[in-house]
Design a protein around this nucleic acid. Sequence first.
DNA 1: GCAAGGTC
Length: 716
Amino acid sequence: MKREKAHGRAIEGQGLGSDLSEGSIDNERSFKSIWDLDGRVVVIAEKPKAARKIVEAVFQEYKPRVLRYKGIPYWVISSKWSEITVVPAAGHLYGITTMDKGCPTFNYIWQPIHIAERGAGHAKNYITLIDKVCRGADHYVNACDYDIEGSVIGYLIIKNHGDVNRSLRAKFSSLTPRELRNAFSKLMPLDREMVEAGLCRHELDWIWGINVSRALMSSLVESVGRSITLSAGRVQTPTLKYIVDKVTSRNLFVPIPQYSVSVTVRIGDSNYSLEYYGRSLESREEAYAIAEAVKAVNKLIVVDYKEEVQGIPTPPPFNLSDLQSEAARIYGLSPLTTQKVAEALYLDALISYPRTNSQRLPKDLNYEEILKNISRIPQYRGLISKLFSEIKGVLKPVEGAKEDPAHPAIYPTGVASISLSRISRRIYDLVTRRFIASFAPSGRLLRKTIVLSPLRQGGGVLFKLAGQEIIYEGWLKYYPFSMPKEFQVPRVGVGELLEVVSVKVDRKFSKPPELPSKIKVLKWMESVNIGTESTRARIIETLFTRKYIVEDSRGISATDLGIAVVEILNNYFSELTEASLTRSFEEKLEAIRRGLASRSQVVSEARGVLVNLLNEFTGKKTEIGISLAKAIGLLKPKAKCIACHREVFDEDLCKYHHLALQELWKAYSEWRRREGISTEEYLNYISKLGIVGRWVKELIDVLCAGQSKGRKLSMQ
DNA sequence: GCAAGGTC
């Protein structure tokens, strides 16, 4: 669920009659300036950085005094009629918890987050400070980020420490001085529907997550008396299923042979190997026929020669997931590491807010000043003077398509770093270079393509030679991590004859599906819109903590436990395994925002669905617990698969090896058609191929061993 | 102890 802007165009502009239907006129009338409020006014910001920006933009000329409580800054502004205190929260200071131990449970309460959650100790001082400044205040302003979570953060603070009936909402879509000044001159009534939607989101996630997690755990406790931490949730479960699906198809992979003809020709003094470019070859015979034809003429004719200049477009500045991708690609850093390092750089004021989806820079940012400040760092001095001369003083950054209402793209602030660790330096360098590069022109590549054939007309028998040269580096000078590899190819003319140096038939194999990397998983979550910038990397790590997934030399693999959990959840809580549960939440929350549904309605509806599902689950609890216990290895199977330690499913094989058997014989029909080999030769051959899926490989090993012992498995 | 969401 994205932290999308509350009352942006996306919502108000949905119906044609929207300008009539929304109470915009009433809202206009109820606008109040911060200066209209008299007495003691408390302004609540989402975090210290935002509080500071608010003070600087709105109150600077009124001589704000900065005070501190246990290191937390807050500001007091005195005017003729009022005393305004700007105080920061630190994200959510309240969370859901319960005293209930059992399942199902729908008894939850909102509590200070340091009581509700482990590891949230920092919240205590914020709450103490807020309580102190709120005491006896006359007005409250929720000035948290203008989105669903910000509405909840500010509301719960005012509800617990102030008075919601004497509260207003500041509405701004970025922390720029202009927006902030505007927001504080037109304070809105408290956005109650938004708050209700936000509270509802928390409660739905909680009742689904806690109850299904507890159901899983209790099935183990009841069947084998073991207590192991298991979990499920709206975001983590679809993510786990995505990984399990990928791992399953990788483990079941059987390669299929493919053929091509590789030819080397001589151009001038050098040899070049050509890529087969004709129609696909399904048998060895076809490939040999072509190889013979080439050998017979021993010359290839250039049937086409093309040169084209291709632009390499300047990339936009980073959003978080782009930064995470690049840090993974270039330095092998995990998304969570990158995020943590970027957060630390942000707290040191070296870069802007990193938890953003935006690929756009703020219009009112002083680009020139930032670049000049960066140029004080010796390693960037040369780059920046090069940039200034290349663009002749016109500083216009490239923008990407992705936006974020709360924050711009990540950029360096121009503050010089004192000393940074190696990883921090690398992340800072990526952000800085990408920022510099975003002002630079596109690069240009010269691409040459030569198409050759043994026949003058081509006739479907084609070979290709492609080369590329960088003719203009452009932005790549500043961000060299994406420099294309050059490959020089000489210029030739159509009709020219080239001497063949060698010809051979190549047999290759179809490519196995790849195991996903952490960054692949994160990008997938982003593409289906589950989780947020702040939570995606964390949720992936949770799956590791639960031992649902493990790191493998080729990527992320799923454990038997992870596979079993997906299977069980698919059977009993199928909503939870699909990313579409998030869509259905969003629709319900949208209805609450529009006043078409109430939080209690939506929660009790979800509760009804869950009670039914949990009942069905409970009926099969022992059976489920036993299957989980077997997946973890707590219980020995009654009958063991001949290829592994798992329980037999059919024909002496477990579920996975049974599937592998089917895949193996399905692929054999292709092998027989293309290679004309016996089953024995087939098994022998593919058992030696490293790309064979794990379950298939394990199965072949027993089949080969079994055959030598005169044992045979059905091959249908 | 379990979710997902803020941020320190």
